[in-house]
Amino acid sequence: MPEVRLMARQFHQDLDKLKDRVLEMGAKARLNVVEGVRSVVERDTELAERVILRGEELNRMDVEIERDALDLLALNQPVAQDLRTVGASLKIITYLDRIGRYGYDLAKMTKQLGAREPSGKKPVTLSLMADHAMMMLDAALSAYKDRDGAKARGVGPQDEVVDALYEQMFRTTVTTMLEDPRTITRGAHLILAARHLERCADNASKIAEKALYMATGERRLPV
């Protein structure tokens, strides 16, 4: 049955392409967050502008990858690992779109804060949170890329660290706002920024869950 094998090979090539596109989208979403946070921490409005321009791109990729994934389903009726790969990819792009969106929102925040507020101390905890959330995202995407169940399992537990940093950021910012009401606008923004990063880490955990499902067929139920 040479045609059958040929068709299957074509399908598997298309599936690999789909995965590559998802990873490409992941890299863009990651860049959004990294630069979005840096723009907030450094008050870099030019950088923020670049992130905002990229916002549309992720949106477009989300739509395109979804379309390609649905085409693969409609034309090939994949099963087993192939089916799980398409299913996981469809979910993962939603999480990536959200992560990219948080980066976009951080950049918007930089523009709103502008130069009118006293800049105060650099909010380095935000950078720490972003580093940790992005480490989780890297691990989740690498588990997806290599179908590595063990790596995927390792991502979820790290969420605690980001949660703890968020708590810390929240408390210190509230204290500062109480001491000096002029910092309230800035403080409110920083808390929101921290909240965005905490959500990025949650979405990275979700991606890891889908990578685990793709690799092993195992589903994590919410506890």
């Binding site: 094998r5 399908f11 598997h12 087993a80």
Partner: peptide
């Protein structure tokens, strides 16, 4: 089984 149902045979 995986290889057969996914056409990787």
């Amino acid at each position: 089984t995986e290889d057969y149902v996914t056409g990787r045979f």
